[in-house]
Nucleic acid binder design. Structure first.
Lengths: 143, 143
DNA sequence: CACTTTTTTAGGAATGGTTATTAATCGAAA
DNA sequence: TTTCGATTAATAACCATTCCTAAAAAAGTG
């Protein structure tokens, strides 16, 4: 759900029984400005620049709502903080375990591998959470 | 490193500059008794049955050492707590996002997929951390 | 064996991202 | 405008994990 038209955003809120408040709009805008995978704290700081009265807890709750209605996806690696991604299409992200940077793996199709997983497990795969870890180019040079 | 002979364990400690203390031995034993993927808290409770004086912090530190020297692997999903696995061979685990249960996907080769990841990223993949999420059979029936 | 040095431990306090609480405020519907 | 549920700001609580410190254990060293 990257760069959704305004009407899609409003529709998604309406159908889910939530209202598109100014705070939630600001969180979504901040997320779009970031491009990358900001943490809740980073989103909070960006939102606060335009509206200094917003509370950190409000940002957390807004992110939770945005995730619930499918406008964003929460990347939950264990090393805190959680990072948020506007790209809710199934895709592979790789995360540097040294510096925390997150990047997409562009040329890798998700579907065929997901199919092979499904063949070998009785679990119902919620396939948007596949995560890979490694070291980014910058961190590889540091030994 | 599942079910390593005692001499391998000692050797691994020695080479890494650590001593195999009774506390670390107890943590490793508890991990072997578990079979599954216990959390630090669960390991702590198991260890405490035989040695009530052991501290939770000691268990955390022992797990950290065991991970560092490669005897165990820490599965770091974001939803706490972290879970530990004696199987340090590259393999796929799937985790139920509803109940937290962790299971292996036995019939899925790791190498070929890891190779495809490497072809499409400049990251150096630390491939033991690949994690898949889904719903286990029991939780699927609950809607 | 002593003696010294280093490592490890137990106990408890601190950390920090995240959640929960609560009273005030907003906003849509009647 | 009144009403009532939804949302917010502010702040306290949570909790897995880490940090701190003095004591204990283990590892050198002569």
């Amino acid at each position: 759900m990257i760069g959704s038209p305004e009407r899609d955003v409003r529709e998604r809120f309406r159908r889910s029984g939530y209202t598109l408040t100014s705070q939630r709009r600001a969180v979504l805008d901040a997320l779009e400005d970031f491009k990358g995978h900001p943490s809740a704290e980073e989103v909070y700081l960006a939102v606060k620049k335009k509206n200094p009265k917003v509370a950190l807890g409000t940002v957390y709750q807004a992110l939770s709502v945005l995730e619930e209605i499918g406008l964003i996806e929460a990347k939950r690696w264990s090393e805190t903080p959680v990072r948020y991604d506007l790209n809710t299409e199934p895709h592979y992200d790789i995360r540097c375990t040294r510096c925390g940077e997150v990047a997409e793996i562009p040329g890798l199709k998700f579907d065929d591998f997901a199919a092979r997983i499904r063949e070998n497990t009785t679990y119902k795969v919620t396939n948007t959470s596949l995560v890979i870890e490694g070291h980014c180019p910058a961190c590889q040079t540091e030994g």
